[in-house]
Amino acid sequence: MEGLLPIDFSGLLKQQTADELRQCNAFTGVYGLQLSEKQIQSLIEKRFEALRSTGRVEFGQGILKKLIAEFCDSPFITQENYEELICDLQDSFYYFKNESMDLFSDDELIAHMKYFFDYICRGDMDYLNGTSLEALCRGKRNELESDVCEQNESEVFIEEL
């Protein structure tokens, strides 16, 4: 897919994302969180890297704004770890979108991530990635498998009828 993107198109996407991240500073300021221009550019670059490494394609402006809006009030995020955590959360988000076989919507997955991050993992990204989200996605996949089994059983039943 990358090869199909005309250069100005991906440039436009980057510009749009940068504008959105600058706007985020307005509402994260009350929590003492601000992104510098350098940090914004770094987050955008890492967005494309995360997409590439997880084998995903994004057409809109990305997930960063939603992640920032959801996590900015977390007691475990400070100005010192802000950029690093948002970057890690972005990586986790795309990874677990794949792991959950896209069965969660963006908003659902972010809400789960926030809940685990604040109440279970207490701001520990390794714990979030290694246990909570893994278990959540495994549960969702099992749910799908049992749905498929039920569907197959009903198809067999209909065929027998």
Binding site: G55, I63, D102, S105, D107
Partner: peptide
């Protein structure tokens, strides 16, 4: 073509997901 792909992907995911697998 890419714009159309973006719209189609959004419809396919019921406008609930900003990204899809390659």
């Amino acid at each position: 073509l890419l714009d159309l792909l973006g719209n189609t992907a959004a419809r396919y995911r019921f406008f609930e997901s900003s990204s899809i697998t390659t």
